[in-house]
Write a protein that binds this DNA or RNA. Structure first.
Length: 343
DNA sequence: GTTCTAGAAC
DNA sequence: GTTCTAGAAC
């Protein structure tokens, strides 16, 4: 392109308990971390070279390689010496022996050079609330009418940075907090419409509690999951077309978006947002795990495991979920699906 | 997760 | 030549 983008994408490794300054990880530059001044860890169980970290700022995760003998783990799963795993935003990395928790955060901000004297102060992010509730909070604002937002035609020049809120994989966390997106909420969960629905009806049920993925689920979450399923079923009861469409409630075995979310999706798959093989297979193969199966597994095993080879399911040929007939392309599949639609 | 697009498939 | 898929995105 005609210009050079000076904005650097960086990953911050944030210490969750003894908050030392976040450690910057630059794209694809390996950083070795362990006991030492940078982490303030003095624990002898932690090697001075406990882990090697490498951020992929484009794809939004870091890889962690355990170098030390004592266990590094991610969300309770041990990495193992010589092995490496990925850590996405929302997951917790424990440097050694379930201690020293860290999370990762991706930001687009170019760190402004500051004087050494100022360095110790935590950085403030003043430009964050650029568009929404700026200014007067004093008067009560219980207006129900949604007056149009201030025209923000400001062009790329100054401080504007529409959504440096976070990486795309954190999008659900943002959406679920947005009252305009919420179609139901109670003390435990919130329901939003999927931003890119893959069928005529496609909702997501999310817990307020931050649970990064199925891997992080434990027995104590059973009641929450049952509640999520109940709420999903409630969505159907108020759906005008529920009687003529069928629905499935379930989870993607390996979701792209952080934060556990239950899909409630009608089985017409009649949507322009359904565009490729991955979309199709993620809802019509065992990549889609029924809510009741997740709950049963959790009750039986105390955790949820994903079968090996699940990611390969996304590459399977396109097959109609109703008559099992294989279709050569997405357009042909969509044409075929019309034959199953209710008249 | 989406967008974009090169080049494979038709 | 057009349609369609699949991999990169700095």
């Amino acid at each position: 392109s005609a210009y050079i983008n000076l904005r650097m994408s960086v990953c911050l490794l944030v210490s969750e308990d003894d908050p030392h300054k976040p450690i910057q990880l630059h794209h694809q530059q390996p950083v070795t971390l362990g006991r030492g001044p940078e982490t303030k860890i003095k624990d002898k169980k932690c090697s001075r070279e406990q882990v090697e970290l490498r951020a992929d700022c484009n794809r939004g995760f870091i890889t962690v390689k355990q170098l030390g003998v004592n266990p590094t783990n991610v969300d309770g799963v041990v990495v193992g010496k010589g092995n490496q795993v990925s850590v996405k935003p929302g997951q917790r990395l424990y440097l050694v022996n379930q201690q020293y928790p860290y999370t990762v955060r991706f930001t687009e901000d170019t760190p402004t050079p500051r004087s050494a004297a100022e360095k110790s102060k935590p950085s403030k992010r003043a430009h964050r609330m650029s568009s929404e509730g700026n200014g007067e909070k004093s008067s009560e604002h219980h207006r129900m009418s949604d007056d149009s937002p201030p025209p923000k035609k400001t062009l790329p020049s100054g401080s504007d940075k529409p959504e440096s809120a976070g990486h795309w994989s954190q999008g659900l966390k943002v959406s679920m907090q947005d009252p305009k997106m919420q179609v139901y909420k109670d003390d435990r969960v919130v329901v939003i419409k999927d931003k890119y629905p893959k069928a005529r009806y496609h909702w997501l049920v999310l817990p307020w509690d931050s649970i990064s993925s199925l891997k992080a689920l434990r027995s104590e979450h059973v009641e929450l999951l049952k509640h999520m399923q109940r709420v999903g079923d409630q969505m159907l009861q108020q759906c005008p077309d529920a009687h003529k469409l069928s629905f499935r409630l379930g989870y993607h075995a390996i979701p792209s978006m952080s934060h556990v979310h239950l899909h409630v999706i009608s089985q017409d798959f009649d949507s322009p947002c359904l565009k490729n093989k991955k979309h199709w297979n993620s809802f019509t193969t065992d990549y889609f795990v029924e809510s009741r199966d997740v709950i049963a597994m959790l009750e039986h095993d105390g955790k949820v495991t994903v079968k090996e080879g699940t990611s390969e399911l996304l590459k399977l040929p396109l097959r109609c979920h109703l008559c099992r007939k294989e279709q050569p392309t997405i357009p042909k599949l969509k044409e075929h699906l019309k034959t199953h639609l209710p008249s």
